[in-house]
Nucleic acid binder design. Structure first.
Lengths: 134, 134
DNA sequence: ATTATTATTGACGTTAACGTAAAGGTAAGA
DNA sequence: TCTTACCTTTACGTTAACGTCAATAATAAT
């Protein structure tokens, strides 16, 4: 595991464009170093990028993602605000659990549909070769 | 359970604006009847609206949601394409399971953070009242 | 030396998903 | 009859999240 990535390496690894990465830096999600003009991304940036993309897949906005990053960062210095942080963590957890609930519901519906489909397909088989009692 | 809802009833029930509902109709997600000029929403519309909002919470675009609706609709008339439909269903299932995986990962991370926080808080308690061996 | 590759910044364009305001129709209640 | 409340369509505005293009710089390969 290196600790130096170019912008196009990360873009290729995650299947996004360099523009996206620069935009994320612009929005405060990434803070790469510089080698002259060129950006140099650390493992920290790489992890953040992965987290950001995961957040996006779950429907979070870049703004929300940045706020979450800030929350997690804050937790490193300020112990006094731990209770508040815990509360926010729990809100975050609740949001995620709601979304997981949504997913469970949709998966159940899919299973229902799939079962129906399989039954219909079986009926067709029966209709081609035997009778309904088989 | 009635089968007639006005636009503002649905808007209030789901916490959205009437504009949103009209927009969803415009995008082919809803197809309410008419009483003169006024829209009349059926239970079918209401269910679709609920599904659409759930999809949105999971990061699906209105376009993807409409395609899913069309897929589920198609399944009612055309049995011949059941295999293709099943394949698409499974792709849908895979997407959802990936997202669920994302959520599990984030929930685990949250638990980790929360545990860390609780430990830090306990250490502070100890620092205030007793010694490390207590 | 020059060509190709990869990077930079800057700026304008685009799409989705609505917000918002204007101008008007209709039906109930004071 | 007039106001209030809710509905309509039309249309322009807005925000997020990038796409795309231009002009330029540095570095590597031929």
């Amino acid at each position: 595991m290196r600790d130096r990535y170019t912008i196009s390496e990360l873009a290729q690894e995650f299947g996004i464009t360099t523009r996206t990465i620069r935009y994320y830096e612009d929005q405060g999600l990434l803070s790469p170093g510089r080698d002259g003009l060129n950006r140099v991304f650390s493992n920290r940036d790489r992890v953040r990028l992965k987290l950001a993309l995961r957040g996006k897949r779950l429907g979070f906005s870049l703004n929300e993602i940045r706020e979450l990053f800030e929350l997690y960062d804050v937790s490193r210095d300020e112990r006094r605000k731990l209770e508040a942080f815990l509360a926010k963590l729990n809100r975050h957890r609740t949001m995620l659990e709601e979304r997981r609930g949504d997913i469970e519901i949709m998966l159940n519906e899919i299973s229902f549909f799939a079962d129906q489909c399989h039954r219909l397909l079986k009926e067709e088989d029966v209709g081609n070769g035997g009778d309904a009692a088989a």
